[in-house]
């Protein structure tokens, strides 16, 4: 299944990736072969089988509505490349 250049560009935009022409070519053919590989699954007869979204047969895992303590501001912001004393800082969002 050949992925078009347009599709690669669309996926790259959604993933916020800037790809060179060569990379578009390379990733395009790699993604195509991945899809071809997975395509083999379509040969299986799945008639009468419920679609699976979760592989473990578990449901209704819930917690009570009871508050626990949160991270300190310092800890919350620690891994962020840019922040002020109280806020995460990001490039200006154009409104």
């Amino acid at each position: 299944m050949k992925i078009t250049k347009k599709e690669i560009e669309h996926i790259a935009t959604l993933a916020r990736l800037n790809l060179t022409e060569e990379e578009k070519e390379l990733f395009g053919s790699q993604l195509s072969s991945i899809l071809d590989y997975v395509e083999q699954l379509n040969k299986l007869d799945t008639k009468g089988i419920e679609p699976t979204s979760h592989v473990i047969s578990l449901n209704n895992v819930m917690r009570e509505d009871t508050a626990v303590s949160s991270l300190s501001v310092e800890d919350a912001l620690k891994n962020c490349p840019s922040h002020t004393e109280k806020f995460y800082r990001v490039p200006k969002i154009i409104e």
Binding site: T84, K86, F87, Y88, R89, V90, P91, K92, I93, E95
Partner: peptide
């Protein structure tokens, strides 16, 4: 979004 700076801030 505050002022004309180059940043936005997230809570």
């Amino acid at each position: 979004h505050e002022g004309n700076g180059n940043y936005s801030y997230v809570d």
